[in-house]
Write a protein that binds this DNA or RNA. Structure first.
Length: 570
RNA sequence: UGGGGAGUAGCCAAGCGGUAAGGCAGCGGACUUUGGAUCCGCCAUCCGAAGGUUCGAAUCCUUCCUCCCCAGCCA
């Protein structure tokens, strides 16, 4: 036994792969900032399911905290009651746990509503916030444009008392939705639009998933996020690039409130080819029924990937392989797929399954004989042991593994040719039986009794080894094959007048029934991971039970033959 | 045309004045009872462009070009 069990040049050498945020933290520790304390947070809005893009943020936030002996909280950013639901908070917690991370504190921005309100009053008293009666439309017009400064609201210079009264009345529910807002008094001429007297509170007579009807005014993101970080003593508040313009405002509230100075750092969000990572668009897919739900195995959500057969380890290795920078980039899907194959190769039990069966009759094999052939469960892991697979006169092989007229370079079965049945015998095809339409219905072969187990005592070489299943012993099952949900590398790229659903791949799901698998899978538990030899990695779907077995293809094996085939055709 | 960011191989990147890491993909080969896995080799005279400084520049300076983000009472 070697000590090296890791296969991986590609595996992260250490959890602390270098990136600019990590460098900043190291600098901060060196400089004695916050006494060397490091605290991060993962702050999802509970308005959708977590996806692979979030996994990157989770790996970063939790990973950094862990590396530097700090803390990482999970905080739900639930400041907008109209979009948020407990279903989402439950799924988010489940997914973070599934990935294998443990949050230190569990918080909600809504935990801080009272404190936030108090601070708003404090800002009003300091002359730094005011109640504005402008309508949403007017606010927009007063804001100016990218190149022209805005105009000050006519309500900007109300007296302190008037502001205090009105804000209190807002809170008491005296005004309808949208009637007034509380705004920060900053600078209507700022080149940064976020600083042109941003709205701090809006009136929303909507029930909140946690605070119920206690409030009818709700803080905006910008007024809630930095203070929430500050309350929790977050030292490094890590978010994505589109918030760069909000950083000055983040700092403005903290400075003017004189509270703990959390600092915000922005990194590039993950983009993947052939994949959409926008909660809004994923919601559309679910609502319009293009997929079966948030956990459809074609979805890039963590729950979808889980059902598809991705492991937390694969996703974390992927997450850790990603660069953290400020460049907008799109990672190729093959990079993600690499990590699932790498992980599944190490852990998935090998098994034989025939997706598109072709009957094979071994003419010189005894009619009633059944031999139990020994098969290795995982050549990558001897510890996974062996099992036994029944062999008999009538078998199924893959339709693809026989060609009447084999093209150049095709090594599998064809008339007169000998191949190895994995863990079985060497067989030679002697006859092809067709129906009246000319379709191949069955093959007749002879076997060489001296090759039991697939061995060749005489040292003879066969070009190919194919998988098989004994017809009388095989179990029927359903297999679901998945392909990319979108046909375009960038699913958002559409022609005038279309939306992203125009790029949906109509062949993203293919359901095969009447597939044959070896009997050892009789009691495959939902979620169990397998490699169907020569085909790919599969996992038992939650729909799978004792009644009917259902398997999802997670990802195919690397297939050099199909590459050659494609090349020849071109 | 305002402000904030970014440009190194097909993709993602390291690099921080001393002569272009690594991964994915691709290509070639070895090995193989999975056309899998594994192993070996190849894959940027060049860093968005043009000037300049320097013995020496992807790294410093200047100008230019391209891309992304911001005008929600979303986050």
């Amino acid at each position: 036994m070697t000590a090296e069990s890791s296969s991986g040049a590609a595996s992260p050498e250490s959890p602390g792969r270098s990136n600019f945020i990590r460098d900043i933290i190291i600098e901060d520790i060196k400089a004695g900032r916050n006494n060397g304390r490091v605290q991060t947070r993962f702050p999802p809005e509970p308005n959708g399911y977590l996806h692979i893009g979030h996994a990157k943020a989770i790996c970063l936030g939790f990973g950094l905290a862990e590396e530097f002996g700090g803390k990482c909280n999970l905080r739900f950013d639930d400041t907008n009651p109209s979009k948020e639901e407990t279903e989402y908070v439950d799924s988010i917690m489940e997914d973070v746990r599934w990935l294998g991370f443990k949050w230190d504190g569990l918080f909600y921005a809504s935990d801080y509503f009272a404190q936030l309100y108090e601070w708003a009053v404090q800002l009003i008293k300091a002359g730094k916030a005011y109640v504005c009666d402008l309508s949403a439309d007017e606010v927009r017009r007063y804001r100016g444009t990218l190149t022209e400064p805005g105009k000050e609201s006519p309500y900007r210079n109300r007296t302190l008392d008037e502001n205090l009264d009105l804000f209190e009345l807002m809170k008491k529910g005296e005004f309808p939705d949208g009637a007034r807002t509380l705004r920060a008094k900053i600078d209507m001429a700022s080149p940064n639009l976020n600083l042109r007297d941003p709205v701090m509170y809006r009136i929303l007579h909507t029930e909140h998933h946690r605070t119920g009807n206690e409030w009818c005014i709700y803080p905006m993101y910008d007024y809630a996020h930095g203070q929430s970080d500050s309350i929790e003593n977050v030292t490094h508040s890590i978010c994505t690039l589109e918030f760069e313009n909000n950083r000055p405002l983040y700092n403005w509230f903290i400075e003017n409130l004189g509270i703990f100075p959390s600092r915000q750092f922005e990194f590039d969000r993950l983009n993947l080819t052939y994949t959409l990572l926008s909660k809004r668009k994923l919601l559309t897919l679910v609502e319009q029924g293009h997929v079966s739900g948030w956990n459809d195995p074609r979805m890039p959500t963590l729950s979808g990937l889980r059902r598809r057969g991705y492991t937390p380890e694969a996703i974390r290795n992927f997450g850790e392989s990603l660069s953290v920078s400020k460049t907008n980039s799109t990672v190729q899907l093959s990079a993600l797929e690499h990590f699932v194959r790498e992980d599944l190769n190490k852990r998935a039990a090998r098994v034989m399954a025939v997706l598109r069966p072709l009957k094979v009759i071994i003419d010189n094999y005894s009619d009633d004989l059944v031999e139990e052939m020994e098969a290795v469960n995982n050549p990558e892991d001897a510890g996974m042991g062996t099992r036994t697979v029944p062999f008999s006169k009538v078998l199924y092989i893959e339709q693809d593994d026989f060609k009447e007229d084999p093209p150049k370079g095709y090594f599998r079965l064809s008339p007169g040719r000998e191949v190895r049945l994995r863990y079985g015998y060497l067989i030679t095809c002697t006859n092809v039986v067709k129906n009246s339409r000319g379709d191949i219905v069955e093959l007749h072969c002879t076997y060489d009794p001296a090759t039991r187990g697939g061995t060749t005592p005489d040292g003879r070489k066969v070009k190919s080894t194919i998988h098989w299943v004994s017809a009388t012993h095989a179990l029927d099952c359903e297999v679901r094959l998945y392909d990319n949900l979108f046909v375009k590398e960038n699913p958002s790229e559409v022609e005038e007048g279309q939306d992203f659903t125009a790029n949906l791949n109509s062949n993203s799901l293919e359901i095969l029934s009447g597939c044959k698998i070896e009997p050892s899978l009789q009691s495959a538990a939902p979620g169990a991971l397998y490699q169907f030899e020569r085909l790919g990695y599969f996992c038992a779907d939650p729909d799978s039970g004792s009644e009917s077995l259902v398997f999802n293809r997670t990802i195919g094996l690397r297939d050099t033959w199909s590459k050659i085939e494609k090349r020849e055709k071109k």
